[in-house]
Simulated scan of single mutants.
Amino acid sequence: MIPYARQSLDQADIDAVVGVLQSDWLTQGPTIERFERAMAERCEAGFAVAVCNATAALHIACLAAGLGPGDWLWTTPNTFLASANCGRYCGAEVDFVDIDPLTWNLDAAALAVKLERAEREGRLPKVLVAVAFSGQSCDMRRIAALAKRYGFTVIEDAAHAAGASYAGRPVGCGEFAAMTVFSFHPVKIITSAEGGMVMTNSPELAERLQRLRSHGMTRDPQQMTGPSHGPWYYEQVELGFNYRITDLQAALGLSQLNKLDEFIERRRELAARYERLLGYLPLTLPGAQPEAESSWHLYVVRLQLDQIGLTHREVFEGLRAVGVGVNLHYIPVHLQPYYRDLGFAEGDFPQAERYYAEAISLPLYPLLSDEQQDYVVEQMRQLIEIIQPLRRVGNV
């Protein structure tokens, strides 16, 4: 089976982890700080705070933004659950903004309309989680302008977008978002096995993020409520969590970061090949967001089902049956039972629902060979150009 995604590891990665295993620090050590500094430098950001996974990163980013009960978090329905759940963890209400029919990202025009209505109704969001779906940023320039006008905090969920750029600058630089979150899950652009990171240019946010990832405690006398009792002393000044990353994970992430340009180059080559090879089939290929340069975490196509003559499920299962491990990103979050129980229903976000009925994620990762990609394309061609016409003939 050709998977839709997989990690790309080499001996340098293994050696980096072994080096930490042979050191004095397995966790809370210097490798974490080196990883953070390297990522901040790469993203041209002031601060980086590494945590155990991107969901934890989103959670503490929301808390650092002051999100709590009585507040609203908005995000896109076309995302993984964590982009919405992070708001619920904080006790906030969650709502969604429908997607752009061309880029499949949160639609900035729909956001503007919804904000106007929310201002009249007195229910503006405190936080907007703008997801860089598949590795491509949203219309962040317009979103940042709307944030300034309406007073909400932008968190860019860039779990897919390490190595991407927007407006000529690295995603994570902080020009258009107060905080940016990356994921280092094995299927992402680079991996630390599990891991996440929050980027920010605010020293105040960075300080709070660092506390929140480690039980809300501090050893900094300036953050304490009273005098220190001695070198051993610490205080818990707020309720935090054990969201710490280990030095083992940081070592792997740091080693992977050295290969980020190589990984992005290969992903972009594969995406360009897909565009050439699939262009004549009854498929809708990914659209480009102006100013955004994608890192191509995913390559998603939409089936033109009125021309194909097979159902969405038949195409999906047909590809799996011949060893093409396609996937689907994503089931609209508002249609999950938990969110239905909060009042959401089919028809609430029609663009996201239409997308879900047609979307398939094709294999894309640096170790995917041209020959494997050719096989993926050929199996898709046979399925929708050969098998379905035969079925039509058989039904006549």
Score class of each variant (00 low, 15 high):
I308N: 11
L248I: 05
Q304C: 14
I360F: 01
G287V: 06
Y356P: 01
A357S: 09
T284H: 13
G343A: 01
L252A: 02
L342M: 11
G343T: 04
D348G: 03
I264Y: 07
Y280G: 09
G318H: 14
P282Y: 13
Q336Y: 07
R354G: 00
A292R: 04
H312D: 12
E262C: 13
R302I: 01
R313L: 06
E317L: 11
E262D: 14
G287A: 05
S295F: 13
I360E: 00
Q307Y: 15
L303R: 08
F344Y: 03
Y274M: 03
Q304F: 14
Y280E: 15
L310Q: 09
P282G: 04
Q307P: 01
Q307T: 15
V326C: 09
L270H: 04
I331M: 10
F316C: 08
P286C: 06
A250H: 02
E353W: 01
Y274K: 02
E353S: 01
I264L: 12
F349P: 00
A288F: 06
Y299N: 09
L270T: 12
L248K: 03
G309F: 11
E265V: 05
Y356E: 13
T284D: 13
L260A: 07
A357W: 01
L342F: 01
P290G: 08
L281D: 05
V326G: 06
S294G: 08
S295K: 14
F349V: 00
E269T: 05
G323I: 10
G279T: 12
D348M: 01
A250P: 01
Y355L: 06
Y280R: 15
G309R: 14
L254F: 01
F316V: 07
A359P: 00
H329K: 08
Y330M: 10
V324I: 15
E317S: 12
G325V: 09
L305E: 12
Y338C: 04
H297K: 14
Y274C: 02
H329N: 15
Q307I: 08
H329E: 06
L298F: 15
Q256P: 04
E275F: 02
S255F: 02
Y280F: 04
E317Y: 10
G318R: 12
V322F: 11
G287T: 06
V324N: 09
L305D: 15
H329A: 13
V315C: 12
H297Q: 15
G325R: 07
L283R: 03
Q351D: 00
R273V: 07
N327S: 14
A251R: 03
Y330F: 13
Q249Y: 08
E275S: 08
P290I: 03
L252H: 08
L277K: 11
R267L: 10
V324H: 08
W296A: 06
L278V: 04
E291T: 05
R302M: 11
I360D: 00
E291D: 13
A250K: 03
Q351S: 00
A292H: 07
Q307A: 15
A345M: 03
R302N: 10
Y280I: 11
Q256R: 10
R340Q: 13
L328K: 15
A352C: 00
F344S: 00
L285K: 07
L319V: 02
E317P: 01
R313Y: 05
F263N: 10
G318A: 13
G309S: 14
A271E: 04
L281W: 05
